[in-house]
């Protein structure tokens, strides 16, 4: 295991294939829990733990799991880790557990996790898979924290609970309510569109940059989201 490979995986998850800003995956939790920077960070780190551990185990078992039942097997592995993390959160960080509520068990259906399992962990050795999970998880945490911070700043005038805006600023509370989530994401996708259009004009390959899963949060393997992961998976196979 060389260091550069691990760093490359981290860089890939954080910047090159950032699951939120570039690939636009896992939108349900992204919208639901980013009411504050703290919640976003909590959700991101929780997802990262599940992603790293499930990537590791799936990679360990990749030669044992028969190809035909791999998706159910992956789901059981992921669901087990989610349950463990949920119980740990309930026991040790009850405040975060209450804030995230239903969205903790719903990490199971986050398409980033199944997408990474399918596209990377099931084809690559253990250590790179672990770092791949950590990288993707960090990218997701970073994105959720940013979105949460923007919403908290506009909606409550605070970041991480610290008062930032001058007292004369009247918080626009709609940004920490449901509609605000849609508007922030709309702005984000608009910026993304702009970058893609500019990139295409310069003749760069922007095919990975798209908005959202197509139809289903979890049927990634066949349609929609993880197709964009696939290309990358094949490249590393050839190496």
């Amino acid at each position: 295991m060389n260091n550069s490979n691990a760093m490359e995986r981290l860089y890939n998850g954080l910047v090159k294939e950032n699951p939120t800003f570039v690939l636009m995956l896992g939108m349900c939790p992204t919208l639901a829990v980013t009411t504050s920077a703290m919640n976003g960070l909590g959700m991101g780190l929780t997802t990262m733990v599940v992603l790293a551990l499930s990537n590791m185990i799936i990679s360990l078992l990749r030669n044992i799991i028969p190809d035909k039942v791999r998706i159910p097997a992956f789901i059981v592995i992921i669901a087990s880790f989610v349950t463990m993390v949920e119980l740990l959160l309930e026991g040790f960080i009850p405040a975060l557990y209450d804030a995230l509520g239903l969205y903790i068990p719903l990490i199971v259906v986050n398409c980033i996790i199944l997408g990474r399992a399918e596209a990377y962990a099931s084809k690559n050795p253990v250590i790179p898979s672990l770092f791949d999970g950590i990288g993707m998880g960090l990218g997701f945490s970073f994105a959720l924290t940013c979105i949460g911070a923007v919403r908290e700043l506009i909606g409550a005038g605070e970041i991480f609970g610290l008062h930032i805006m001058p007292d004369s600023y009247v918080p626009c509370a709609i940004f920490i309510m449901a509609p605000g989530a849609f508007f922030v994401l709309a702005a984000l996708t608009a910026v993304q569109n702009k970058i893609r259009i500019n990139g295409e004009k310069k003749g760069k390959d922007m095919s990975k940059m798209q908005s959202g899963c197509s139809e289903d949060c979890m049927n990634c393997n066949e349609k929609g989201c993880s197709h964009r992961f696939y290309g990358e998976g094949k490249e590393s196979e050839q190496k």
């Binding site: 509609p179 849609f182 709309a186 996708t189 608009a190 569109n193 908005s211």
Partner: peptide, 21 residues
């Protein structure tokens, strides 16, 4: 141009969310 596709749909969804409030 940059609002074509997903962004404008999300803006619409946001306005609907306000209405549902």
């Amino acid at each position: 141009e940059s609002f074509k596709g997903m962004p404008i749909v999300l803006v619409t969804a946001g306005l609907m969310a306000i209405a549902f409030c």
